[in-house]
Computed example of a mutant assay.
Amino acid sequence: MINVNAYQQYQYNSIMSASPERLVLMLFEGAIRFVKLARKAIEEKDIAGANENLTKAQDIIAELNQSLDMSYDISENLAGIYDFLYRRLVDANIKKDAEFLDVVESMLKELKDTWEQAYVNSKKNS
Rank of each mutant, 00 (worst) to 15 (best):
W115P: 07
F84Q: 12
L54S: 00
M1Q: 03
K123H: 01
E63D: 10
K36D: 03
Q8N: 09
Y82S: 03
N5T: 15
N3K: 11
E52Q: 08
A62T: 05
L27F: 04
K45L: 09
Q58T: 12
L27E: 00
L78R: 08
S19F: 11
Y7V: 09
I42C: 02
L68R: 12
M107W: 01
A79D: 15
S17W: 10
E116V: 03
I94T: 05
M26Y: 06
A18I: 07
A38E: 09
N121F: 11
A18W: 14
A98R: 02
L27N: 04
K36F: 01
I74T: 09
E99Y: 11
N3D: 10
S106W: 10
V103D: 01
E116D: 15
L64C: 03
D69I: 05
L25D: 09
V24M: 02
E29G: 09
T114D: 11
N3R: 09
L37R: 12
L68D: 00
S75L: 11
M26N: 07
Q9Y: 07
P20K: 09
E76H: 15
A41N: 06
L54C: 04
G49M: 01
Y82G: 02
E52S: 07
A48S: 13
N125W: 02
L27V: 01
N77T: 06
S75N: 08
V4G: 07
V104R: 04
S14D: 02
V4W: 02
D46Y: 00
A62G: 00
Y12S: 13
V104P: 01
E63T: 06
A118F: 01
E76C: 08
E76F: 10
Y119M: 12
V35R: 08
W115C: 03
N121E: 13
I2T: 06
I81P: 05
R33V: 09
M107G: 00
E105S: 13
M26T: 09
V90E: 05
L27C: 06
E44D: 14
I32K: 07
V24T: 13
D83W: 03
Q9K: 14
E110C: 02
K45C: 14
Y7W: 14
V120E: 12
S67W: 13
K56Y: 10
M26L: 13
E116A: 12
I47A: 12
N65R: 04
